[in-house]
Design a protein around this nucleic acid. Structure first.
Length: 206
DNA sequence: CCCTGATTCGC
DNA sequence: GCGAATCAGG
């Protein structure tokens, strides 16, 4: 069965994606494969991330030169290209899926290259608010956003916080639903939990 | 080997 | 539209 890409799911995908998380990482947190993530990202039109490779395109023997007038305009309907795409290292806390038990973070995996063994607060067991997102990417992004409060509200995430509650796939699963912060898919409370450093959770059973 | 993302193509 | 399979670079 095809994945059901709901508004919330897409909002999360976009958010995680723009945070610079790897496709596999996003996939784990979203309970899908990296292929699904990259595939969807492409269809969504977002994908201005550092590409490690450039697949050898099949030589088009038909038209060696005829790329003059493609469509009306460039595919960038509303995506102000980021000045510089420094791969972000800020890993949002894994979604409180399944078992939000207050267990200590497991051994530092090899996922995010820069991830430090910094114990992150479990989403549902720490009253201490998450530290300010010292993400190298979050800051400049926020700055730009502040500089352009209007003009292009292309970031129309759902009007409800999409922080997942419960076990995805089970009847009780639902999203927070609170009013999200402007430009974010989460409400104020969950945004704090979301932008905490946490390096990995590759065992995310779907 | 691991990781990464990109593209293709059957569904 | 979806994503596994496959490809390709680090």
């Amino acid at each position: 069965m095809a994945m059901e890409w709901t508004e919330e799911t897409i909002a999360r995908l976009r958010d995680l994606w723009q945070q610079g998380l790897s496709t596999a990482e996003i996939g784990r947190q979203l309970s899908v494969t990296k292929n699904a993530v990259v595939g969807k990202a492409h269809r969504l039109g977002l994908k201005p991330r550092p590409s490690p490779i450039r697949r050898a395109k099949a030589a088009a023997p038909a038209e060696p030169a005829a790329q003059a007038a493609p469509a009306t305009t460039s595919p960038e309907t509303a995506a102000p290209a980021v000045a510089e795409p420094p791969v972000a290292q800020a890993v949002p806390a894994a979604a409180p899926i399944a078992t939000p038990e207050p267990e200590a973070p497991p051994a530092p995996a090899t996922a995010v290259t820069e991830a430090k063994p910094e114990p992150a607060a479990p989403p549902a067991a720490e009253s201490e608010p998450a530290p300010a997102p010292r993400a190298t990417r979050a800051q400049p992004r926020a700055t730009r956003a502040a500089l352009r409060p209007v003009s292009e509200p292309r970031r129309r995430s759902s009007q409800s916080c999409c922080w997942p509650l419960g076990d995805p796939g089970t009847p009780g699963f639902h999203f927070c639903g609170a009013t999200p912060l402007p430009g974010k898919p989460y409400c104020a409370e969950h945004a704090q939990l979301a932008y905490v450093k946490l390096r990995d959770r590759r065992d995310n059973v779907a």
